[in-house]
Simulated scan of single mutants.
Amino acid sequence: MTKTMKHLASGTALALTVSLTAGAALAQDAPSLIYSDTVAAADPRSAVLDEGFAGCLGDAFAFEPYHGATLVKQGTELTAMQRGNLDMANLAIFDFYNQVPETSILGTAYLFRDVDHMRTVYDSDVLDELVAMMEEKTNIKVLAFPYIGTRHVNIRGDREVMTPADLEGIKLRMPGGEGWQFLGEALGANPTPMAFTEVYTALQTGAIDGQDNPLPTDKSMKFYEVTDQIILTGHRMSNNVFAVSQSKWDSLTPEQQETLQACADQFENDMAEYVIGQENDLVSFFEGEGLKVYAPDTAAFRDHVLGVYKASKFAEDWPEGLLEKINEL
């Protein structure tokens, strides 16, 4: 080997060493994002997160998702974020009630006319003050509001449910928490608090008579195997609060914050596209599995449930004029 060739080889080796060292340093510098979700790892919605959101983040972050409430118990994610034990979560709006009572308006059944109305509200500026209040009081940064589906009542047995009165005595599983339990009562049922991971077995054994969830969840969790009918109540156009702890957000560079926000926006879009596509196809699937799927008297449900909410203590906390602004959009 000539002297020149030796010099080139040495230079190449040095450049490779520097490159590898720089790459390792970048990997070490990538901030971690520990994330918790109640949705099972096998659920297709988890793939939207694990592949879409994580793929968008790329090497800029070390994203570490925990599914099926394996890291943090359902309903305790917000507290875990505030204590520094968790960086990110897809929070339910009811998780905020104890600390920000004003958020109860966003958990109101039949608040939105349809998915387009819900999206219009969240894309407008009418919620800006409420979101700012949420962030200030809970010390989290709201990134997006991903749509996770329209909730319907799903029960065992052949009782026909056309009005809230027809749900009397039905043991309807609802997540734990005052807001969720009140929703079950407003629908006319007997709400029973239960962890999401226990619902299938409880339906199978008859410990509960039914549950409420979006159609994609009914399929992914195989609730159709242990129930007989789905009543298309459409009582909640559900979205979660995709958020990061404020302390984690503040620790990021402006470039990292921009990347995280852009990927959260993309996750919101991807999740809505997936869920809406599933909802459009699933009625025929459930009917093929032998379930009775039908629409009740939706006007009767809406009038009754909104009346119960407006007369409740929750309405006392609603920001003045916000309901009217939402209805006007």
Rank of each mutant, 00 (worst) to 15 (best):
V100K: 01
T233D: 09
W318G: 06
A264D: 04
G290M: 02
I148R: 05
K137T: 15
N213R: 11
Y66L: 00
L57N: 11
S284N: 10
L187H: 01
W318P: 15
D116R: 06
L172Q: 01
E77C: 07
R159T: 12
E255H: 06
Y35S: 07
K219W: 08
M271F: 10
A80D: 03
L323V: 07
G177K: 03
P31V: 09
T298P: 12
Q99N: 11
E136S: 11
H304N: 12
A54W: 03
G290R: 04
I276C: 01
E255W: 07
E135S: 04
H67W: 14
A189S: 08
D43E: 10
I276W: 01
V115P: 00
T197D: 12
K222E: 15
E225T: 04
L127C: 13
I326A: 05
I140Q: 01
S238G: 09
Y294S: 09
D209M: 13
A62K: 07
N154A: 02
P216R: 02
T103Y: 02
V39Y: 04
V241K: 01
F145G: 04
I276S: 01
I231H: 03
Q266A: 09
G157L: 05
S247M: 12
V199M: 12
N154S: 03
F112L: 08
Y97L: 09
Y224Q: 07
E273A: 15
V131S: 09
V283G: 06
S19R: 00
D270L: 01
A207G: 01
Q181L: 15
T227Y: 02
M5I: 09
S10A: 14
G68C: 08
L106K: 03
N190R: 08
V39L: 14
T76M: 00
G179T: 14
L291E: 07
P101W: 02
M162I: 02
D95N: 12
P254D: 10
A9W: 07
I326N: 01
M134A: 08
Q28A: 12
D29S: 14
L215D: 07
